[in-house]
Design a protein around this nucleic acid. Structure first.
Length: 599
RNA sequence: GGUCCGGUAGCUCAGUUGGAUAGAGCAUCAGCCUUCUAAGCUGAGGGUCAUUGGUUCGAAUCCAAUCCGGAUCACCA
């Protein structure tokens, strides 16, 4: 139980005992952290009880304050200011808390329970390399997976690869026509980039053909439909579906290049998956679900043989589930994969990390599954995030305006190097250590930048302005962590010391403001972690860790640790520093951001 | 047009089930390195919380209407 909850419970119990004849609801008790301009740690708001108790706020505050002080060991004093009861927690509570937890490396972690959750993220198409928008998806998915694990869930990280369809055929056609057999090795280009280049090439060729046909007097719409290269791509897709050996061989070869490229990118990003799904295996699923639905009468067939569901009652429209020729559409596959995932892992919850442009699609998916009585329907959660846009608008891979993921990571690492060198902080590192440090700083900054914003908000990224390494950044937190490690090195204390080290510690002097603020903030971590899990929001961890680092920097500036006033203070501050570093590592670790010991 | 999401400082964003004088970072300005790492610290300026009305002891937060921006409403995926 968090301290805030403890205070709330204590206040509620006290009110019940003080006013047994009045029905006070638990939810009407509001406990906040006391504003810094007042003395106290947690505040009970008295206004909600005025009418109920027919007393003045000061009177209620006094009775409540006295009662709390007399009956519990938690509070040292109270103060009433204009309807607010400000409670001060006993110093001994804080030092005991610190002593109990400062060496705990998994503070805030929940024990593993029975709840099985799948988080599907990344889910790329195989016709082009990953870009900045994918990075938001991937870092979000990876972070949420770790946060859920820390909250005791059993997590399966899944990636559904869209490895078939017209888009990959476009790359294949362009490659056949213009590549002269080029491979990633022969061209010296990463596989996913090579395939992406031919996807762009296809569009160039296509546009040229359309322009030519229009110039020859063709209607533009007709030209777009009849351009020979487009017809070839469509023919290739038909051949693929028919299992044509040559087409399949080329498809496998080019997808293989892409996977190799993706693997590199994923490794660099520091993310991984427990389960890969491929649309080439799953795109035919779902038909059976549709047949069942027809039998149950939930779905209906039109004269042309196409199958539909009527969602008008739910404020939506009729939705197609099978074409007249019996082939499936996008949502049909998704029905199938939803069920497949559910059955593969006996899931309680299935999280889809998908951009908000698909809100409607997921809504329809859930609705159909629930109308069909599929048990997987209830567990679907759409972690909907806003698109990443350029100042000029959306990124379009066809037009080559994307910010490439590999480039972006390389740039961030280079920026980290540049700034480290400019600050003259390269001494004492080996070449290898420096390379690792630049990666830690560069990728940390990138991940933090993408995760610090509420997922559902869209974000605008200006490639001309590089991502900052000052202020509200991962670098700031890393720096605070490195400072702590530096102190510990000098004091010859390991980063995770033995719990017995300060066992003899006794609190004699009162806590200073910043000392207490640090401990108070540390105590709140489990609550923040639980909230981040409940809301699928890594940004709350960013906020929390930044605030922790900020507090530590002020604390560090105001009070010397190694040259503390006395041994007691020194031990106390060391414990605070040790625990702060540990919580920074834990929280940022969940986001895939490493904390260097030296920088 | 329907549905959904957003609108808070010059910019990027926090802001808990409604609680005290709305907070950070960047940018600007003024200070702080002989003292545990200045990628830092301290301070200043900067606000019609889109608008209007309502609910109430109290609203950035809840409700209604309006305005602006975005997404979506395919026999594409």
């Amino acid at each position: 139980m968090t301290l805030a909850a403890l205070v709330k419970q204590a206040a509620f119990d006290a009110l019940k005992q003080l006013y047994p004849d009045t029905a006070i609801e638990y939810s009407s008790v509001t406990v906040n952290q006391t504003k810094p301009e007042f003395s106290g740690d947690y505040t009970v708001v008295l206004f909600p009880f005025l009418k109920l108790l027919r007393q003045k706020p000061d009177a209620i505050g006094k009775q409540l304050g006295d009662h709390l002080l007399g009956r519990t060991e938690l509070f040292a004093s109270y103060d009433i200011v204009a309807g607010f009861l400000n409670l001060t927690i006993k110093d001994s509570y804080w030092s005991t808390f610190l002593l109990n937890h400062y060496t705990q490396t998994n503070f805030g972690h929940q024990c593993k329970g029975d709840c099985r959750v799948m988080v599907e993220y990344s889910s790329p198409n195989t016709n082009k390399p990953l870009h900045f928008g994918h990075m938001r998806n991937i870092f979000l998915g990876a972070a949420v997976s770790e946060i859920l694990k820390a909250n005791g869930k059993q997590v399966v990280k899944a990636n559904l690869i869209n490895d078939r369809g017209i888009h990959i055929c476009k790359s294949m056609i362009a490659w056949e026509k213009t590549a002269n057999g080029a491979t990633p090795e022969s061209a010296g280009v990463k596989g996913d980039h090579l395939v992406g280049d031919y996807y762009v090439r296809f569009n160039d060729l296509y546009k040229a053909e359309v322009t030519e046909m229009v110039a020859a007097g063709k209607d533009e719409k007709a030209a777009e439909k009849e351009a020979p290269i487009m017809l070839e791509a469509q023919e290739m897709l038909r051949k693929w579906e028919a299992g044509d050996k040559e087409v399949r061989a080329l498809w496998e070869k080019m997808n293989g290049w892409v996977y190799k490229g993706f693997d590199d990118t994923y490794r660099k990003m520091g993310v991984s998956f427990d389960k890969m799904y491929y649309e080439s295996n799953t795109y035919l699923l779902g038909k059976k679900i549709v047949e069942d639905g027809l039998r149950k009468g939930v779905l209906f067939r039109k004269e042309d043989g196409s199958v539909w569901i009527d969602l008008k009652e739910d404020g939506l429209d009729e939705k197609l589930l099978l074409r007249g020729d019996g082939t499936s559409v996008y949502i049909t596959q998704d029905l199938g994969t939803a069920k497949l995932k559910y059955e593969d892992y006996k899931l309680h919850q299935s999280v889809y990390v998908i951009a908000d442009e698909q809100n409607y699609h997921i809504q329809v998916l859930k609705l159909i599954l629930s109308k069909l009585g599929e048990p997987c329907a209830n567990g679907i959660y759409h972690l909907s995030y806003g698109m990443v846009e350029l100042p000029s608008g959306r990124m379009k891979s066809r037009e080559g305006t994307v910010v490439d993921a590999d480039d972006m990571m390389a740039e961030m690492i280079a920026l980290a190097q540049e700034q480290t060198e400019a600050a003259g902080k390269t001494t004492g590192f080996s070449g290898d250590e420096l390379r690792k440090l630049y990666e830690t700083i560069g990728l940390g900054a990138l991940k933090f930048y993408l995760l610090r914003v509420d997922p559902k908000k869209k974000m605008i990224f200006d490639p001309k302005e590089s991502i900052d390494l000052h202020g509200y950044t991962a670098t700031f937190i890393q720096y605070a962590h490195a400072r702590i490690c530096s102190i510990l090195r000098k004091e010859d204390i390991p980063i995770v010391p033995d719990a017995s080290r300060f066992q003899s510690f006794h609190q004699r002097e009162p806590l200073l403001k910043l000392e207490k603020e640090m401990i108070l903030h540390l105590e709140q971590y489990p609550g923040i972690l639980a909230e981040a899990g409940a809301e699928f929001n890594p940004a709350s961890l960013c906020n929390y860790a930044f605030r922790l680092a900020q507090l530590f920097n002020s604390f560090y500036d105001a009070h010397s640790i190694s040259k503390a006033e006395n041994q007691e203070k020194k031990e106390l501050r060391l414990m605070i520093a040790i625990m702060a570093a540990s919580v920074m590592r834990h929280s940022m670790g969940l986001l895939g951001i490493r904390m260097p010991e030296k920088m």
